[in-house]
């Protein structure tokens, strides 16, 4: 039987809230679960969460807009975040950044037209001794050089081709 997407979203959120304690302190874990399964946090999801936690949707929106790792809109399947803080900068992040832009054909803040990659800045990923560092989704890459950038992207493009039928569900 086909369950409407919104109904399924609501059921999922109910379950996550239950398993995370049920009060307003479960807000962040629930938001992370929503994003993991649905790849973004939609307006409707925010309102359902607010309703079930007995807080206001605007408070949920305040939290979602505060954290860079929570997103309202769809972005690339793989989000690349390059650290722009001082030690990575001194270790040569400019060359890495140029290489990323050239390889992907987009600038920072954009997503590739095929929806595979998006490019963002990050403020310190805690790898200052091994800069330049970047994140691809939750995976950390350190001591990145322009040559390495090519390998990293090739790796994820390959992964994407294998898992083409297992993309995150969208709503």
């Amino acid at each position: 039987m086909l369950v409407p997407v919104q109904e399924r979203l609501r059921q999922d959120i109910e379950g996550w809230i239950k398993s995370n304690g049920g009060d307003r302190s479960s807000l962040l874990p629930v938001l992370q679960e929503v994003q993991k399964k649905y790849s973004r946090i939609s307006d409707y999801a925010m309102q359902v969460i607010a309703d079930l936690l007995d807080i206001h949707p605007v408070e949920v929106h305040g939290v979602v807009s505060f954290y860079s790792f929570l997103k309202e809109a769809h972005k690339g399947r793989f989000e690349i975040r390059l650290c722009r803080t001082i030690s990575c900068d001194m270790a040569g992040r400019d060359r890495v950044a140029r290489q990323l832009e050239n390889e992907l054909g987009i600038t920072f803040g954009e997503t590739t037209p095929d929806g595979r990659f998006s490019l963002e800045w990050a403020n310190c990923v805690g790898m200052c001794d091994q800069g330049p560092a970047l994140l691809v989704n939750e995976q950390v890459f350190t001591c990145v050089t322009p040559e390495k950038v090519h390998d990293i992207l090739a790796h994820f493009k390959k992964m994407m081709d294998i898992n083409v039928f297992q993309q995150a569900e969208e709503h």
Binding site: P57, V58, E59, S65
Partner: peptide
């Protein structure tokens, strides 16, 4: 939010 429990305004970003 607190006084009126309406929840129209909040700080964002």
């Amino acid at each position: 939010i607190d006084l009126q429990e309406v929840g129209v305004l909040d700080a964002a970003h």
